[in-house]
Amino acid sequence: MRMKTLELSVGLFMLMGFASLAVLALQVSGLSWAPEKGSYTLYANFENIGGLTERSKVTVAGVTVGRVVNITLNKETFSGVVEMAINADYDNFTADTTAAILTAGLLGEKYIGLISGADEELLEDGAMIEDTQSALVLEDLIGQFLFNKVNE
């Protein structure tokens, strides 16, 4: 085969490969064009984080505003400390914002939902959200149900 045709087909092949990578990036994994404008950190304490994992979403009114970056255990209070990276654009959360661990869809993917409050003070970088609602644990629910049943 002539060299020119060969080189052309190889070039085409490589183009296909890189184009595939681009498709995988954009269409399949939804990598967005907009650059990460920077984020700030908020913390929240939970009694039980349930199935929350790193990279879980943080949402307000269903809109994704950030991501869970780290989950650790507070050794004194034995509660779970969740570190969240919040998009710098959303910087007006009030000091009495609540954080709840909610379940998305039937497959049970956990995420954090924030509800803003009415306080005048705003949450700064590194602040701790006081008011939290832990994940609903199935065993507790069943226990509660049985308890209620017994009481009837």
């Binding site: 890189f18 595939s20 995988l24 399949v28």
Partner: peptide, 16 residues
């Protein structure tokens, strides 16, 4: 070394 990763990406896209 070079061809195989490219083939994998093409495979993935075609599969999707």
């Amino acid at each position: 070394f070079i061809a195989m990763p490219l083939l994998v990406m093409i495979f993935n896209v075609v599969g999707v």
